[in-house]
Amino acid sequence: MPTPVIETLGLSKVYQGSVGGVPVLSHVDLTIEYGEVVALRGPSGSGKSTLLNILGCLDRPSRGRYVLGGSDVSGLTREEQAWVRLHYIGFVFQSFHLLAHATALENVTLPLHYAGVPRGRADETARDLLARVGLSHRGSHFPAQLSGGERQRVAIARALTARPPLLLADEPTGALDTKTGAEIMRLLLDLHKERGTSIILVTHDPVVADYADRQIFLRDGKVVDTEEAQVGARA
């Protein structure tokens, strides 16, 4: 049996200062295989973003183990976390989070810059990726000059330049209209097929979630099975 890309065991998160130490995540056990597309669903405030941040090594669990690509990454230093993010993880956000003073091409090149790839090669890779997401003519545009859909395409290209095995997307279509959102989803799935990137996708939208191989439901920081979640949603 091959190693899963993600394995968590009893993952919990308690924010200091939250009232009575109420956990935002409690005992989350997850296994995600290489090449899977998983939708993470749940009501607002159920802890989806918190889980995604821990999986993305932006945050640390309060308790539990997190094994990424076979290595325990629960207790890394901030420098080590950065290294893991750089080489293993690509992020896509609801609000794009492009650097406003950098062009589309520079935004896409950025991870390669931090990885120390020489500029010529980095630019070439970035240009290819921009072309792949359909923006070869927009390389020298600044984010403010791009539409929402175009910005998210740039963000996706940026998340994939360093060829990470794992892409984390927190409501990537949340700020887009339905049609553009569907295009972005199709792009993500195409890239997934071409590159074999595993994707964890946070979404409210059942239509978007249907693109995924598998759905995981969170409720009050706990993983619940589908029926329970739907009961909860109806209640």
Binding site: E79, A82, L86, I89, H97, L98, Y114, A115
Partner: peptide, 12 residues
């Protein structure tokens, strides 16, 4: 925050 998410280390 974005730079950090992308993989920039604190020292970078």
């Amino acid at each position: 925050g974005v730079r950090a998410a992308i993989g920039a280390s604190p020292s970078q």
